[in-house]
Amino acid sequence: MTLAHPAYGQVRAVTPIVSVVLENNPGMMTLDGTNTWILRAPGRDECVVVDPGDQDEEHLARIAALGPVAMTLITHRHVDHTGGVQRFFELTGAAVRSVDPEFLRGGGEPLVDGEIIDVAGLTISVVATPGHTRDSVSFTVEGEGTVLTGDTILGRGTTVLDDSDGDLGDYLSSLRRLLDLGPGHRVMPGHGPELPDLHTVARQYLDHREERLAQVQAAIADLGEEATAREVVEHVYSDVDPQLWPAAEKSVNVQLAYLRAPN
């Protein structure tokens, strides 16, 4: 029987190169849980792991057992993607590469936008996609038309922008950059199921952000220039479950910063 998302703790093949193991850490910010991606070229023993996940011994050991792991790549700094980095390095000895130097291990160097990584028979391109966080990157896998988007694009719903270092201007630019990759790319997100067409979902994300930004501008016009993020959330997200308002407030904080920044 072919596995489908969500399938906790099982290796689920998505393409001839890409497989996923879903960590059993569901929540408001993680949806069904965090996707750990395993990239393996046909006929090769070694693999590349993208986002080992949180500090979950069972999950980390399961991923390590799929090795040997040639390299670990990180899409962004959030703990549900990186909490297990040190333990995973201990289990595998594989170099860890990320934008944020905090997560580098085993001689791994910081990821650079536009860099081509040749490892374990794979060719992986680094695409800087900041906005969700400052350090967010995506990865394309040559020959497959697959893009691992981290939390820049999710398998369902929309991305929350982190109000500690997220930036709406950067995020809109990142979505346009992914859109410019053109049709024929599949999305392998940090959370949720894979999606068949990056071009379509990136366009939907852009349209949604522009719609929300217009709603926030309208709310400020009604509430006054000094309106707080919480007041805007209550005004704009009145049809959304209030349990989701704290997450919405993060994105609204980022939107307000964008609107209030000097031209």
Results as ranks from 00 to 15, higher is better:
Met1His: 10
Thr2Phe: 05
His5Trp: 15
His5Gly: 03
Pro6His: 03
Pro6Trp: 05
Tyr8Trp: 11
Tyr8Leu: 13
Gly9Arg: 15
Gly9Trp: 01
Gln10Gly: 00
Gln10Met: 12
Thr15Asp: 13
Thr15Glu: 08
Pro16Arg: 08
Val18Asp: 13
Ser19Gln: 14
Glu23Leu: 11
Glu23Trp: 03
Glu23Ser: 14
Glu23Arg: 13
Met28Glu: 11
Met29Asn: 08
Thr30Ser: 14
Asn35Arg: 11
Asn35Phe: 04
Asn35His: 08
Leu39Asn: 05
Leu39Ala: 10
Arg40Gln: 11
Arg44Lys: 13
Asp45Gln: 15
Cys47Ile: 14
Cys47Ser: 11
Val48Cys: 04
Val49Gly: 09
Val50Leu: 10
Pro52Met: 05
Asp54Lys: 02
Asp54His: 11
Glu57Asn: 09
Glu58Tyr: 12
Glu58Arg: 15
Ala61Gln: 15
Ala65Asn: 04
Ala65Gln: 08
Leu66Asp: 02
Leu66Asn: 09
Gly67Ala: 06
Gly67Trp: 02
Pro68Phe: 06
His78Cys: 10
Val79Ser: 14
Thr82Leu: 03
Gly83Lys: 01
Gly84Arg: 02
Val85Glu: 01
Phe88Tyr: 11
Glu90Val: 03
Glu90Lys: 06
Ala95Met: 06
Val96Thr: 14
Arg97Glu: 08
Pro101Phe: 03
Arg105Trp: 09
Ile117Arg: 00
Asp118Leu: 06
Ala120Gln: 06
Ala120Thr: 08
Leu122Met: 13
Thr123Ile: 02
Ile124Lys: 02
Ser125Trp: 00
Ser125Gln: 12
Thr129Phe: 03
Pro130Tyr: 07
Gly131Phe: 09
His132Trp: 08
Thr133His: 13
Ser136Thr: 15
Thr140Glu: 04
Val141Tyr: 07
Glu142Asp: 14
Gly143Cys: 03
Gly143Glu: 07
Glu144Arg: 08
Thr146Cys: 07
Thr149Tyr: 02
Thr149Val: 01
Asp151Leu: 06
Arg156Met: 12
Thr158Asn: 11
Thr158Val: 12
Ser164Ile: 04
Ser164Asp: 13
Asp170Trp: 12
Tyr171Leu: 05
Leu172Gly: 00
Ser174His: 04
Leu175Ser: 07
Arg176Pro: 05
Leu178Phe: 02
Leu179Arg: 15
Leu181Gly: 00
Gly182Phe: 08
Pro183Ala: 15
Pro183His: 14
His185Cys: 10
Arg186Asn: 01
Met188Glu: 06
Pro189Asp: 07
Gly190Asp: 09
Gly190Trp: 01
Gly190Ser: 08
Gly190Ile: 07
Gly192Arg: 03
Gly192Asp: 09
Pro193Met: 09
Pro196Thr: 05
Leu198Asn: 11
Leu198Trp: 09
Val201Tyr: 05
Gln204Gly: 05
Tyr205Met: 07
Leu206Met: 12
Asp207His: 06
His208Cys: 01
His208Tyr: 11
Arg212Tyr: 03
Leu213Gln: 07
Gln215Lys: 13
Ile220Asn: 00
Ile220Ala: 00
Ile220Met: 14
Ile220Ser: 06
Ala221His: 04
Glu231Gln: 15
Glu231Thr: 12
Glu234Asp: 13
Glu234Lys: 12
Val236Asp: 04
Tyr237Ile: 02
Ser238Trp: 08
Ser238Lys: 12
Asp239His: 15
Asp239Tyr: 10
Gln243Asn: 11
Gln243Phe: 10
Leu244Gln: 13
Ala247Asn: 11
Ser251Lys: 02
Asn253Asp: 13
Val254Leu: 03
Ala257Trp: 01
Tyr258Leu: 04
Arg260Thr: 03
Ala261Pro: 03
